[in-house]
Design a protein around this nucleic acid. Structure first.
Lengths: 141, 141
DNA sequence: ATGAATTAGTTACCCAGGTAAATAAATTGA
DNA sequence: TCAATTTATTTACCTGGGTAACTAATTCAT
């Protein structure tokens, strides 16, 4: 019985994340962005210029994923990549245009997230976070 | 403050699902499968032969996604597509080879899921399901 | 000091999700 | 009946996740 509960849980997780991503993409399309691109912009806004490695480690994705997304973002004028003191690494920063648009996009995203979480109370959101953190945790998170 | 909690929640959700999918893919790679292919096999095993539309509606994905995955699965000998009475639709069923391998793969998947959920009690799993169902729910389901 | 190991990033190639538009078969309606 | 609409599936093309293998720069160890 627990096998089925667990299976159902993972199925549900998959579905929700797809729904959320889809909704985010439609909201962001008004601003010429995709959800993964937005997550990088949000990260850069919060921490300031950072290396690609810092980005993919923070977002918990692999390096090639970030390389690809950043090259699209650079092409679309959201970010610039500069070579740092260590010539291997590249420092990523937001363009002026990106900084200007940030507030508006952030507002739209926050609104969409709020709507999607509207059925949950603040306590439930925290509990959901707590339970998710206990799921599929190998060690350091 | 709730804005940030919500944002953190969605971030966490994304990460967990990626970790889970990644782990599933490594487990399934021993059997020559990917997680999406497995979810179709599981579905067909449970419900018997069904149309593609029934599959994508059940899995909550778009039709082209299923078309693509099924054509790979057919090429690899997991499924066959037959034309039904209604000549537009295609009935999908598992091959004999797929049926034979099902038990072994199912066991491996259940074991992996169990490990990933090991930190959660049965009650917590149910609660997690409950909270996820309340998230991003537009209406039906 | 220099050769070996590590690290940062890229490239090539998978699978999986999406949308938009096309095709073909069935259904509806005047 | 037969044109218009709907339905099932496919095709083409996009983003985004992954791995494996590569280059180039740096660090480590002898």
């Amino acid at each position: 019985m627990t096998d089925n509960e667990t299976r159902e849980l993972f199925h549900l997780l998959n579905q929700r994340v797809r729904m959320i991503t889809k909704e985010m993409n439609t909201v962001l399309s008004d601003h010429g962005l995709y959800h993964s691109q937005w997550s990088i912009i949000f990260c850069l806004n919060q921490f300031g210029p950072m290396t690609q490695t810092a980005v993919w480690k923070y977002l918990n994705v692999e390096a090639p994923t970030v390389t690809r997304t950043l090259s699209r973002m650079e092409k679309n004028g959201w970010t610039i990549r500069k070579h740092g003191a260590d010539k291997r690494e590249r420092l990523i920063e937001l363009t002026e245009a990106a900084k200007e648009k940030f507030t508006a996009v952030n507002k739209a995203v926050a609104q969409a997230e709020k709507e999607m979480a509207q059925l949950l109370s603040s306590e439930e959101i925290q509990q959901l976070q707590h339970l998710l953190r206990k799921l599929a945790t190998t060690e350091g998170e």
